[in-house]
Amino acid sequence: MADDSRAFNAASFYEYLKEGQLMGVHCRACDKLSAEPRSMCPSCHSRDVEWHRFSGQGQLGTFTCISVVPDVMARQGYGRNNPYCSGIVMLEEGPRISAKILGVDAANPQDIPTGMALAADFDEVDPEAPALAFRPV
């Protein structure tokens, strides 16, 4: 399924993202999954890891809607009058990951339900600055 010649690092993670895949690693020694590719398992310290393709399905664990934004988001038009949502997604396979949350009304965060089903959105991955994003199913 996966090209195991790719290095287990962030460059590969974002390369896969641009190809429409959410790829992390599976530890063959202890069976733990990590959403961030690593060459050494943080649980059992084994180096016997392999690529694991995540389904991209998950739930919104927690989130924030950001109004004072970093430069990179300001250039995309976000700011005090146009906040954006970022959150922690609990992947259906277990691990959590940080991601942008699209398709929600970030100006009305009280109406965004944690626990809602989300799916990874690969359509809007910016090739220059790839970032993981999810939206409500």
């Binding site: 962030a10 993670f13 961030e36 664990g61 927690t62 989130f63 924030t64 809607c65 950001i66 004072v68 934004v69 970093p70 988001m73 954006y84 970022s86 959150g87 922690i88 990951i97 940080s98 991601a99 942008k100 944690t114 600055a129 790839p130 970032a131 993981l132």
Partner: peptide, 26 residues
């Protein structure tokens, strides 16, 4: 914060504490 996996998700320093606050409120 983690420049490879938190910052690209748009998370700022107040943002991560905001997410902690939301989890605590939930």
């Amino acid at each position: 914060a983690d420049g490879l996996y938190e910052v690209p998700a748009g998370l700022t320093f107040p943002g991560i504490y905001g997410a902690l606050a939301k989890a605590h409120m939930d």
